[in-house]
Design a protein around this nucleic acid. Structure first.
Lengths: 229, 229
DNA sequence: TAATACTGCGATCAGCGTTCGCACTATTAG
DNA sequence: CTAATAGTGCGAACGCTGATCGCAGTATTA
């Protein structure tokens, strides 16, 4: 027998009998995203989401199997913020770059995305559209299927990496981060890590320009050119 | 006044007064790593670690400020498994590749590393040595300090990405993963994502060769050549 | 009209990270 | 030698978490 449907995406939103649900997955997702945008992913507990919807925690389990599925819904919801309608140029590098830039914007808008535990194949309908688009952009490149997927994965890794760095730069540091920074400086000044000290100096010097110039686009371009040649 | 020491690395392991501690950070770290290796990072709760050390949870807080510091210790402990003593060749690409390969091995040996929440500057003494080594490898390359750090960051992103993929391939899939996979297949077969379907087919075909050949080394080389030229 | 399948949700469970306060002990100061 | 001090071990507890169970109420089907 073929195992009942299991992902949120396949499981029907409501049954055919009984009273109409008073809420919807979309509403719950929206409430969760609002919470996460305002107070971080840690604030997205079943209880707090329930409070926001004026119900009890147990009720949410009529809509979701568990908290992880809520993450699925949240991630896929914001994936829809990427525009996939613009025409492709035919240049894999430029077309992928457009995608990556947008994806990075989404991450900056929803920093909690970086806190969602990485699951293999966490991909909803919108994520699927995104992937299809990336593969379309990559179609002209003479790569194996596996290499294409690896390239897209690498691109996503770059997106999250730079999103993290930019968020880190623009947010005021926590106590922990200040402590870590002073430790690093002190340790580097000890003399046994001269190159780290030098890199640190260069880093703070470039910050003194107060130009948070990100090298994202040029770096992505270089990497993609190297991979799709 | 200069704020009391705050990172685990600066805070002295024991005070000058009072009885000698019955345990050490190293012991606690070892117990936590054993737990994590065997049952995953989720099993590393203060209580379970305490049980493993035949003590109470509250006692651990004489050694650590919080659970996150335990992660610091764990990550830095396994960072020591990378060999940094071999002589450098002088070729940044090859020298960094050696580092990356080792780092990936560490991740395969300790999969829970991928579950530790990414914090900016989570870097202990061993992590610092690793960073210094990477900068040494990169010294011959004509790059700005910032670009060097970005390159190393990208390298680490590649390491985690491939480690994740390889672990995913070699572990038997969870219920969730099976469900996600069947959803993906079904959705791709629907016709609106032809390229995803094609990529999926190519993926399962290459798996049929049962050769889990990783493209890690060649891909890292290509990326690094592109970035350090 | 009866059976059925669904909904909302209060009560509750087990587990979590962390804090408090107390008994105890080694070191230091007088 | 004694008293003050700072450190240690840890039982008990607090507030929070994700999740389950069972029951009352409701819309659909037979």
């Amino acid at each position: 027998m073929p195992q009942e449907p299991v992902t949120v995406w396949e499981r029907p939103e409501r049954g055919a009998r009984g009273p109409a649900p008073e809420r919807s997955r979309a509403q719950i997702t929206a409430a969760a995203i609002e919470l996460a945008d305002a107070e971080g992913l840690a604030a997205v507990s079943m209880r707090q989401v329930a409070v926001k919807l004026a119900t009890g925690p147990a009720s949410l389990y009529r809509y979701l199997a568990d908290r992880d599925e809520l993450f699925d819904l949240m991630a896929d919801a914001v994936a829809a913020e990427v525009d996939l309608t613009a025409p492709l140029t035919g240049d894999p590098v430029e077309d992928l770059l457009v995608l990556a830039l947008q994806s990075k914007e989404v991450h900056l808008r929803h920093p909690w995305l970086l806190d969602i535990p990485t699951e293999p194949l966490r991909l909803g309908p919108n994520g699927l559209d995104y992937l299809e688009r990336a593969l379309r952009a990559l179609a002209p490149a003479p790569l194996s299927e596996q290499s294409k997927l690896e390239t897209i994965g690498l691109l996503n890794a770059l997106v999250t990496q730079f999103a993290r760095a930019e968020l880190h730069a623009q947010r005021s540091p926590t106590e922990r981060q200040k402590a870590q920074a002073t430790y690093l400086i002190k340790a580097a000044a000890e003399g046994r890590h001269p190159l780290v000290a030098q890199a640190l100096a260069g880093q703070t010097a470039s910050n003194a320009d107060s130009r948070p110039q990100s090298h994202f686009a040029p770096l992505v371009r270089r990497v993609l050119v190297g991979l799709t040649s």
